[in-house]
Design a binder for these strands. Structure first.
Lengths: 331, 331
DNA sequence: CAATATATGCTCAATTTAAGTATAAGTATC
DNA sequence: GATACTTATACTTAAATTGAGCATATATTG
């Protein structure tokens, strides 16, 4: 067995740091993308170099270039995944050093979310229309995607292959008893990719299945550069899981907020509707927030009390977060 | 903002793939380490090169060298974290390309867990004695560690620093109301590292606080090469979280097993005791297992029925795993 | 003032969880 | 082969949590 560092066969690779920078503004979850510079090019995730000489850690490096380039001040930052598949970049498959990207998710406060030059905030569900269940099952999922997924299943070569596809689709899209699991964002995107139902599939030169490239955007969301939508899917799944047991949602909230604002932010990321009275009971019982004594009358009805995050909760609860029902097929 | 690939300032780094290969044999969770070759050297995680030319994906690369070098056939494999801090390798801090390690966790079945040449299976809790709560709070935590942590808190420079340390310790070690959260393995290790309470601290040339290096092993567990114990802490935390909502525990079980064997495996990884009757009710109710009709009489008492994993559960439950009480300070 | 909007307090049944009691079916010991 | 001991498994019960809805409070709008 090798001694790791002494193994001589390591090859140098190029490493960059990619950032999924997310926030929630007025009910809508958003993500920062570098707008397409030319016609025919696609939006991409912001990314920067990792400079081993000046950056002590990768996270520091990330924070440095994000601040330099966007002026944003990142709050919560978490490493997501390291992407190194050969087919990440369809145009540069052969030769040259492999490009590896260490992906991070970061959250910024909605108030701080100005618009850096060259980039823009995109609604998350413009990229993943099938993930937005806040008003019940998305029409595009029921009418467009589901039939296409079914015919993808039927298109399996052998009966065994079809069974495998069926099971994957059942789990990912909750066609079976398990119902919709909001966290399985990546599984769903990967299935759509393999089924040829997102525009990226065709670009990557894979077999094209049951999909008309021409109006891809309107059908299955905005395609991004290379594998960036895949990275975003990873990030969304991670965030959705995380709000359930860590108080990360407060990273996107202003200092004071009403409970409905908080609920809308959670619903935005979770992609699911929540029962209002229970939600308020829950955040109160969990001790996540405390009243400020101030009231906001911008709500249109009875003024809502303003609350603030109560940091002490992390010392009181083992896993403080917003409990919500999992996998309920509300419809 | 940069176009990622076109940014010219990326520097080449050396990338290797590290593997935390875990299993559970007869109640004890174990991890595969490459034994110390020389006196004074420490056990290390197995790792191998990433060869961009022959490996399509990093996971494939990992599986390849693990099979080549150990003969083990990995089941569950999941990317863990990418470690790239400058101080990973205390002996090579200046100059030369940065060494980056993409860490993976893998599980192998206990039956397949033979002992590859040059490496050996180590009890997980030999490395993390404070993590084993299966018989209540570990004596070493209560008698040795806790007092030292308290004096580390008191040793803070300012009152603000002390308060910060207090809070960190409260959360990580459950001194406050929240109680012990089995998942926070990394937070605990990092605190011990910073407090100078593990042998690695001294090696890394940091300030040594309240710790006698000479008998480090017996006091705070077996130290490993470089930051490898830190990587293991990350892995253990991840596995503990994962068994709760994904049926990964079956990756270490033989095809047929008794419910007590299953319980022991879960307890081993979780580091916590479970209520026997509730455990069986739970795995049954969740549909995780099905009876084989066979019985085992090796149990010493009434023969236990053998069960097997029921894969169908993933289609029926949104998050099939072993539910267990979180953060109960059993004592 | 009526209509309407949001905020917030409270109830209630269903479900889940935690913990314990009781019983079954073997092995070991004398 | 009676007795003690071990493990397996079924069942009971109280407490806590969850899901859903009803009722009331306090604002704005016309």
């Amino acid at each position: 067995m090798n001694k790791d560092q002494s193994s001589g066969s390591n090859q140098a690779v190029l490493l960059d740091l990619g950032a999924v920078i997310a926030t929630v503004t007025v009910d809508e979850p958003r993500v920062l993308l570098v707008g397409p510079e030319e016609l025919n090019s696609r939006p991409r995730l912001p990314s920067g170099p990792f400079d081993p000489d000046s950056d002590r850690t990768m996270e520091e490096g990330l924070r440095r270039w994000v601040t330099d380039q966007t002026g944003l001040n990142l709050g919560f930052v978490e490493q997501l995944y390291t992407f190194g598949d050969r087919f990440r970049d369809p145009d540069a498959r052969a030769g040259g050093p492999r490009s590896i990207s260490v992906g991070y998710v970061a959250l910024v406060r909605q108030s701080a979310a100005k618009r850096p030059a060259g980039s823009d905030w995109f609604d998350w569900y413009r990229l993943f229309p099938w993930e937005d269940w806040r008003n019940g099952i998305p029409a595009m999922l029921e009418n467009l995607l589901q039939p296409k997924i079914l015919s993808w299943i039927d298109g399996g070569e052998s009966s065994k292959a079809r069974k495998g596809r069926q099971e994957r689709a059942d789990v990912a899209f909750g066609f079976s008893d398990a119902g919709w699991d909001a966290d399985r964002v990546l599984e769903r995107y990967e299935l759509l990719y393999e089924a040829g139902l997102v525009a990226e599939t065709v670009t990557d030169g894979r077999i094209k299945t049951g999909f008309d490239q021409s109006d891809a955007h309107t059908l299955t969301g905005l395609p991004l550069h290379q594998d960036h939508r895949r990275i975003l899917a990873t990030a969304l799944g991670r965030l959705r899981g995380k709000i359930r047991y860590r108080p990360v949602i407060f990273e996107v909230m202003p200092a004071d907020f009403t409970l409905l604002q908080l609920q809308r932010a959670v619903e935005g990321l979770a992609g699911a509707p929540l029962h209002k009275q229970n939600f308020r009971r829950l955040v109160a019982a969990e001790g996540l927030v405390e009243p400020t004594g101030q009231f906001s009358s911008e709500t249109g009805g009875r003024p809502a009390e303003l609350f603030r995050f109560r940091p002490g909760v992390v010392r009181e609860r083992p896993a403080p977060g917003v409990r919500m029902p999992r996998g309920k097929r509300t419809k």
